[in-house]
């Protein structure tokens, strides 16, 4: 069974998309966990499977072409993958909510914003009157005058739209919030406002949060835990301090290494060499080994697994295989 402290625990999740070009292995054995009331930052480059993971939790993998082929997603101790569509509908919006990436396209253009907030409240058992009041309350909470509930999305700016989306997500006071790159599409000043507001609301409602991003700065400011994703796997996981002070996985090192330094005079960026792998033809063994400066021949045969390296910190890299295991092999 799952650990009771954990609101979310994902074990070995495998999700594929069957396309004409072949089977895209979007997630192959992703595992992570999140304690109640905490924020987990999920970091990785485009195509690493971050959004697929989020949609997997929500039960919103588009089928076809998507298919969950293995693993478990424990939410409050129950496996969401075994839940019926009917039960999942009760979870979505009420217990788990999701904020999507692009506020410009995430609101229905032909419904007033009030109606869109009311809809989630109505779906989870509130009366019409309660829903209208609730929608007004939520708008005020995200700093939009309630009189504007009658307006349509095109009458709001990008930052305001994102705040409306946050209002929709938090309307039913969910225990767990997934934010899929909530600020990527916004200006930096608006990013800051939105992040501060999310932090405030999260504390107010005691919500646990999964924050998907590729911005390590946002992670440092907002998260308690960090999971680094690469090619559909969580390659490194740990508390914020563990990851930022003591990154172990070569990919994580590469990510930190690619941030230009403010104090030194550098002319060139230091990227991770090579390209992310084609998800229809992942390399054998460790998916990162073709780009890894520490790679050995054994990496291509290695059966990917996570090794603890002290505290809650785990790393999926052959270099951290404990000595006793190495002898077994």
């Amino acid at each position: 069974m799952a650990d009771n402290d954990n609101i979310l625990e994902i074990r070995d999740l495998k999700i594929v998309y069957k396309t004409q070009e072949g089977v895209v292995e979007a997630l192959n054995g992703a595992s992570l966990s999140l304690k109640r009331g905490q924020t987990l930052g999920l970091v990785g480059e485009t195509g690493a499977g971050k959004t697929t993971l989020a949609r997997g939790i929500m039960g919103l993998i588009p089928k076809p072409p998507g298919q969950v082929v293995g693993g478990e997603i424990f939410f409050n101790g129950t496996d969401l993958l075994k839940a019926s569509e009917h039960d999942m509908r009760k979870v979505r919006g009420a217990q788990i909510s999701m904020i999507f990436q692009d506020p410009m396209t995430s609101l229905n253009p032909v419904m007033t914003v009030g109606e869109q907030i009311e809809e989630v409240l109505r779906a989870h058992g509130r009366s019409v009157k309660e829903a209208v009041e609730g929608a007004h309350e939520m708008l005020e909470m995200v700093g939009i005058p309630k009189e504007r509930a009658e307006e349509y999305p095109h009458q709001f700016s990008g930052g305001m739209k994102q705040r409306i989306i946050i209002a929709i997500a938090l309307a039913c006071n969910p225990e767990f919030l997934i934010a899929d790159e909530p600020t990527t599409a916004l200006d930096v000043t608006i990013q800051y406002q939105v992040l501060v507001m999310m932090q405030k609301l999260k504390e107010q409602f005691n919500t646990s949060m999964l924050m998907i991003t590729h911005d390590l700065g946002i992670v440092a400011q907002n998260c308690d835990y960090v999971a680094i994703m690469y090619a559909g796997q969580v390659v490194e996981y740990g508390a914020l301090r563990e990851i930022f002070k003591d990154p172990r996985h070569p990919y994580t090192l590469g990510l930190f290494g690619s941030i230009p330094s403010l104090s030194e005079d550098t002319d060139r960026l230091t990227p991770i060499e090579g390209m992310p792998p084609d998800p229809t033809r992942l390399p054998t063994g460790c998916p990162f080994h073709p780009r890894c400066q520490y790679a050995t021949e054994a990496c291509a045969q290695w059966k990917s697994e996570a090794y603890p390296v002290g505290g809650e910190h785990t790393v999926r890299c052959l270099r951290f295989q404990p000595a006793e295991k190495r002898e077994e092999a």
Binding site: R89, V91, R92, G93, F100, L107, M111, I168
Partner: peptide
């Protein structure tokens, strides 16, 4: 469209997603 995902994430039925959104 993205707003269809938003609608689905609210926990409304597929019929409501189809007609309303």
């Amino acid at each position: 469209q993205d707003y269809i995902s938003t609608a689905r994430s609210k926990g409304i039925t597929e019929g409501q997603v189809t007609v309303r959104h």
